[in-house]
Simulated scan of single mutants.
Amino acid sequence: MDSLYTAEALSTGAGRNGRTRTADGTLDLQLATPTSMGGDGNGANPEQLFAAGYAACFHSALQGVARRAKVDLGDSSVGARVSIGRNDDGEGFGLAVELEVTIPDLPHEQAQELADAAHRVCPYSNATRGNIPVTVTVTDD
């Protein structure tokens, strides 16, 4: 791969209950384990960061495929839900992602075609494909 950009971040403290900061200081967050996992929930967590990154990256991919198809996405949005749970074998944890794509001014079928195309080119989708379940749903809201 010919790298176009490299992000750098450092986690310090106690992992999920520590701090994470990007090398340029743009992102600097206190982390906390979610209450549903036994933590106090008083900070961001890796799943939130992954969800935010995936939603933004997928939305960019969607805009790119729409631009190439000469389609106006209007007031589109992409939401991401990232779930964490124990692996089926009970050893370790795994992730699952649900992406929700909304393109209000397009027919559902056309919106689905664009979402499917975005899923083929999005770097996050390419990184997760075959590794974790990712569901892409187009809503008509």
Rank of each mutant, 00 (worst) to 15 (best):
R19A: 11
V71N: 02
V82F: 02
A51L: 08
D89Y: 05
V65H: 02
Y5G: 04
T102N: 15
S11F: 09
A117Q: 14
H59Q: 15
A118H: 02
A69L: 06
A7C: 07
D24N: 15
A14N: 13
T12I: 10
S36Q: 14
A117E: 13
G85N: 05
L4H: 09
E113K: 13
R67H: 13
L49H: 10
T35A: 12
A55M: 08
C57M: 06
R68D: 14
G15E: 11
A117Y: 03
D28K: 12
A117M: 07
N17F: 09
D89R: 06
R86N: 03
V82L: 04
D24F: 05
R86M: 04
A96C: 08
L95Q: 05
P107Q: 14
D75W: 00
L95W: 04
R86T: 10
N87L: 04
H59E: 13
S76E: 05
Q48R: 12
S83V: 05
I103N: 00
G90M: 03
G92F: 04
G64Y: 03
H59I: 01
L106Q: 04
A9Q: 08
T33R: 13
L31T: 10
T12M: 05
A66P: 01
A80N: 02
R81L: 05
D72S: 14
N42F: 07
D24K: 08
A96D: 10
H108K: 14
G64I: 00
R81S: 07
E109C: 03
A55R: 03
T33F: 04
G94M: 02
E91R: 12
L4R: 11
T35L: 10
L4I: 08
N87E: 07
E47P: 07
A96G: 15
A44R: 10
A23F: 03
A7E: 04
A69P: 02
E91V: 13
G74H: 05
Q110N: 11
V97R: 01
D2V: 06
R16I: 11
D75I: 01
V101E: 00
L4N: 07
L4E: 09
V78Y: 00
T102G: 04
D28E: 15
I103W: 00
G15A: 15
G79M: 00
G43Q: 14
E100Q: 15
A66F: 01
I84M: 13
T26N: 12
G92H: 06
A55I: 07
I103S: 02
E100S: 15
S77Q: 13
C57I: 05
K70T: 12
D28L: 11
H108T: 10
E8T: 14
R68A: 13
G85L: 02
C57N: 06
L73S: 06
Q110H: 11
E109S: 14
Q110F: 02
Y54H: 09
S76G: 09
Q112D: 12
R21E: 13
A66L: 04
D88Y: 01
E100W: 00
A61G: 12
E47I: 08
T102Q: 15
R81E: 11
A55V: 08
A66T: 03
T35V: 09
G39N: 13
R68I: 01
D105C: 03
T20N: 14
V97L: 11
V97Q: 01
S3E: 11
T12K: 10
A7L: 08
A52R: 07
G15S: 15
L4F: 07
R68T: 15
G25L: 07
V78M: 02
